[in-house]
Design a protein around this nucleic acid. Structure first.
Lengths: 235, 235
DNA sequence: CTCACTTTGTGCATCTGTTCACAAAGGGAT
DNA sequence: ATCCCTTTGTGAACAGATGCACAAAGTGAG
């Protein structure tokens, strides 16, 4: 039986915490730019849009980096979170699919700012290959494996149409990539050990629609009962 | 005390379930296009990339729409999920900020396909105002309130630079919008009753980097045990 | 009708995440 | 040094989500 010590410095950081660390990092970066040297959990939590107990518990998973009665040193905390997230090293990212979205991503400043470097843009469309976007030459998808190997690409962003995504995914995983950010609206199947994160614009809208509908229902005198539909004769 | 009946048709659908319904919907749509009339929880779960017990529990929150020994009627289930998500009605969406990302969103087919209609594109840049994108005229941000009111916009997508986002947010909430999809890398503060969903490209990358780093650590000689760090003399 | 087989819907145990509330720790004033 | 004030770090209660495993419900063959 694996006994998990309840120590800090335990390397098992909860997934929910990991997802919030970038948020704290951004808030802290803003503060350091405004010359703030020290921040309390209360203030940082407010800036990040979470409650302060949660913030403190999250940070406690990294170690004990605050000073009671005072708060956290902004610079130091930035460094600790960056290190934990692996942002002190430089990640080479390839973007596959240079349509509207791929272009937007290539030009997105937020990528470059924090340890990420767009190392390649790839597409299959001959009209697009050769274009210069965000200072990079768009290369043909045939070069995928070569580019990944030569430039040490470890994260691939898939911004292709849905139909091409699985195929691209298969090729990049075969080439040894184990981290994929997928914008195509499909469920990718990948070998064990490969992480896929998905960003799906239409899913987000659908979730909003759900809540919006519910708000509307509540205002206009309750749910529209009994639009009951006879079961069976649909098809 | 409010006694919540453990019945199906209970309108309290868990958030986690709501977030998966669009996934099921997409899988089902694919099936109906391939002429599949009936599907088991096992197969649908596989297509959506979840486990089958979870799928069944999720669907059971909508009601009891399956047939034991047979499975679910694809068309009927599509209808039920669509209705629950509010996709049987037509949602007018306005996109504020017509940079690379805004353009990508305006052209994204997935929006239109399911009940969402891009009703307006707005920007503050005079060079962009007047452009025709995805069949729409880009309008000046000054028209924001008018456009929202006239076209019945109920969901606003913010795709502006970070610096402009809160201001746009304030204006659209003042105009009565209660659902916002935010792509700008800032924490928006909104009045009670307003739903904000956030899509943040760089956060997703940072989460991937964290896991990637961890995988790298593990391979290069196991967890770096006893990198124990003496507490206190850091900083 | 009865039996064998399939697949749903759900009670229950478990795990993960959130929030409360407070003791412990540090700072600064006197 | 002592006292008071602030703020962290965390135990414990609670809440929410997941997954197992099985009874209940349906189909179809004989």
């Amino acid at each position: 039986m694996i006994r998990r010590l309840p120590q800090a410095r335990d390397r098992g950081i909860p997934e929910a915490t990991v997802a919030r660390l970038p948020l704290y990092l951004r808030a802290l970066t803003g503060m350091t730019e405004r010359g703030v040297a020290t921040v309390s959990s209360e203030d940082l939590a407010e800036a990040a849009g979470v409650n302060s107990a949660k913030l403190r518990k999250d940070l406690s998973h990294l170690g004990s980096y605050g000073t009671r009665g005072v708060g956290y040193d902004v610079e130091y905390l930035i460094y600790q979170i960056s290190r934990e997230l692996g942002l002190t090293q430089d990640w080479a990212v390839a973007i596959v699919g240079v349509g509207n979205l791929g272009r937007a991503l290539a030009n997105y400043g937020g990528f470059v700012s924090r340890g990420f470097r767009v190392a390649a843009l790839l597409d299959s469309d001959p009209d697009v290959v050769g274009d210069r976007i965000a200072g990079l030459n768009v290369e043909h998808i045939d070069e995928l494996e070569t580019v990944i190997a030569r430039r040490g690409v470890s994260i691939v962003v898939i911004a292709t149409p849905a139909a091409a995504a699985q195929q691209v995914c298969d090729r990049v995983t075969a080439a040894g990539v184990t981290s994929i950010l997928n914008f195509a609206p499909v469920v990718l199947s990948v070998p064990d050990g490969v992480d896929v994160r998905k960003v799906d614009l239409s899913i987000e809208l659908q979730i909003l629609a759900f809540h919006e509908q519910r708000k509307a229902d509540r205002e206009s005198g309750g749910p529209v009962m009994a639009e009951e539909w006879q079961r069976g004769e649909s098809a």
